Simulated assay, not measured.
Amino acid sequence: MLRTRTAIAAVSFLALSGLYATPAQADPPSRGQLQVDAFFSQYLTAVNGQNQDQTPVDVRNEFLTAQLNQQLDQYQQTHNADPVFRAQNTPVSWSTQYGGSGAGHTTVILTENWAGGQHTQVWYQVELSDLTIDGLEDPPPPPA
């Protein structure tokens, strides 16, 4: 329940401040999208040292499963990059897109936008029952 309130509060703040806008004809964001957006926003703020109340590890512990946290720690050691951003620097903006649902989970595709104009997609898996993020990976390869 706390995660849901955190996600709603974060999106409400972003909407009121004009930082979160959707096209007039777009579907409203799903609960999973709101959760991933709240996580990513809080994580980026913590990484940039703009959140005195939470470190990046605190944010990860709040939103992610312990198993996913372990996988991200391994990713960081293997790739020498931030495991959430999938890079050594931080994105300048991001957007989320609904990727589908099934078996009690929803997929959210987060697109990171970089200063040079490049884009990186990261696919999140969110448990529908409690909105815990239990998967974060690079996009699947295109079909052959």
Rank of each mutant, 00 (worst) to 15 (best):
L131C: 09
A9Y: 07
I133F: 05
T65H: 06
G100T: 03
V92N: 11
V57M: 07
L72G: 04
V126I: 02
Q33K: 00
P56M: 03
G100R: 03
P143F: 05
N89D: 03
Y98P: 07
P28D: 08
A66K: 13
E137W: 04
T55R: 04
T4G: 02
A24D: 12
G117K: 01
P142E: 07
S95K: 09
S93K: 09
P23D: 15
Y98A: 10
N51W: 02
Q118K: 10
G102C: 10
Q35T: 15
P141H: 06
W114A: 07
G102L: 13
P28H: 00
T45L: 13
L128Y: 02
Y124D: 14
T107Q: 13
D53V: 04
W114N: 03
V84W: 11
T45C: 13
T45S: 14
L72N: 06
Y75I: 04
N113H: 15
L44V: 11
Q54W: 11
A26I: 00
E62A: 13
G100Q: 03
L14S: 13
V47H: 05
D37C: 10
V122C: 06
T4Y: 06
G100D: 00
V126G: 12
S101T: 11
T55G: 06
P91C: 09
P139C: 04
T132N: 11
V36S: 09
G102I: 10
A9D: 15
D73Y: 03
Y98F: 15
Q125C: 05
H79R: 07
L19S: 12
A66L: 07
L14G: 13
P29I: 11
T45I: 06
Y75K: 09
T78F: 09
H79D: 06
N113S: 14
R86G: 01
L131P: 04
A87N: 14
Y20C: 09
V59N: 06
G32M: 08
Q125E: 12
G49I: 06
P56E: 00
I109L: 10
P29A: 06
V108C: 02
G102P: 01
D130M: 00
L16Y: 05
Q121H: 01
Q52A: 15
W94P: 00
